[in-house]
């Protein structure tokens, strides 16, 4: 189902005059969530940039009803909301978690794992700007190797935690990666997730001009470069089958990928990297794609193990 821009109504998908920094990928992403899910969704937002982006009461700069919740509890609060709606006969409401990489990969991982294992019928979106941006650019589990942050002044020594793979291992019906550089792809994935029953996970790559140290006008371009260099592969895992998304398909072949340096050189957080560091990141990319290759080829005759249980 291709996304046609002209079909969208002329309404506010996000509320202007909010507290987001110029060029913010989160407000971009939130617009796409509204474009995809319309007026039948409520958001659950744990502590993070998006808590602040809403701005000051009695107004809110995000165009959704929202339950703001403590940092570690987004998935469980959403599970509760969904259960509440179900018990009140409101199966039409999409409960969507909108959490950062801190709220997902780190402090919120336990609650999310619980909700995924229980199969709670929610869409969980991790908007990944690869550090704790709201508190001032500290490293997170999702910060890539080599990146400068205010708690890794000489660059992070560990690789990025691969949360989408962790969620695939949970055997949930739908896992996808997306990027604010490819809104149509993200919108399509959201629309698909909305038709799937059970726990849906979408990991949205969201380059942050403030934390990554780049010109705020470059947010979409940097997001696209992450995909084109193979650093952020777009894929979809639905009912046990992994498929590389169309915007990433070309970069399955190493030689077709844009050189990683093109992506790194635009970002101040990677300015100090040595060639040896770049090589470590390139090896990370190769390994990432090798895993994807394995997952893509993995035989899966009848959906997830959850399906076999008749869930």
């Amino acid at each position: 189902m291709p996304v046609k821009l002209r079909d969208f109504p002329r309404t506010h998908f996000n509320m202007p005059g909010n507290a987001a920094c110029p060029g913010c990928p989160e407000t971009m992403g939130l617009r796409y969530v509204k474009m995809a899910l319309g007026d039948k969704a409520v958001l659950v937002i744990p502590a993070g940039c998006s808590s602040v982006i809403q701005g000051i009461s009695p107004k809110s700069g995000i165009n959704f009803p929202i339950l703001n919740i403590v940092f570690a509890a987004a998935a469980s609060a959403a599970a509760g909301m969904k259960a509440g709606f179900e018990m009140l006969g409101r199966d039409d409401v999409q409960v969507v978690v909108w959490a950062g990489d801190g709220g997902t990969a780190d402090i919120g991982l336990q609650a999310m794992s619980g909700a995924a294992e229980r199969g709670d019928d929610i869409i969980y979106i991790c908007v990944d700007n690869e550090a704790y941006m709201n508190t001032g650019i500290q490293r997170s589990g999702a910060t890539p190797y080599g990146a400068w942050t205010t708690t890794t002044w000489t660059g992070k020594k560990e690789h990025k935690k691969n949360v989408p793979f962790i969620m695939i291992a949970h055997d949930v019906p739908y896992v996808a990666t997306a990027s604010v550089g490819y809104p149509q792809d993200f919108i399509e994935k959201l629309r698909k997730a909305a038709t799937v029953k059970g726990f849906k996970y979408i990991h949205l790559h969201a380059p942050c001009p403030v934390g990554w140290r780049f010109d705020p006008g470059l947010t979409p371009e940097i997001a696209q470069l992450a995909v084109k260099t193979g650093m952020w592969p777009l894929f979809e895992y639905h009912n046990g089958k992994l498929k590389i998304s169309s915007f990433s398909r070309l970069y399955r072949v190493k030689e077709k990928r844009v050189p990683l340096k093109e992506y790194l050189k635009l970002q101040g957080r990677f300015r100090h990297l040595k060639d040896s560091d770049v090589k470590i990141l390139e090896e990370y990319i190769d390994r990432l794609w090798a895993w994807l290759d394995l997952l893509e080829k993995a035989p899966n005759p009848s959906g997830t193990a959850r399906d076999l249980l008749g869930k």
Partner: peptide, 17 residues
């Protein structure tokens, strides 16, 4: 109660930024 409604300008006229 700590409740709000979506509306433009939750931190004012950001055009001044």
């Amino acid at each position: 109660a700590p409740v709000s409604k979506p509306a433009p300008g939750s931190v004012g006229k950001t055009g001044t930024w």
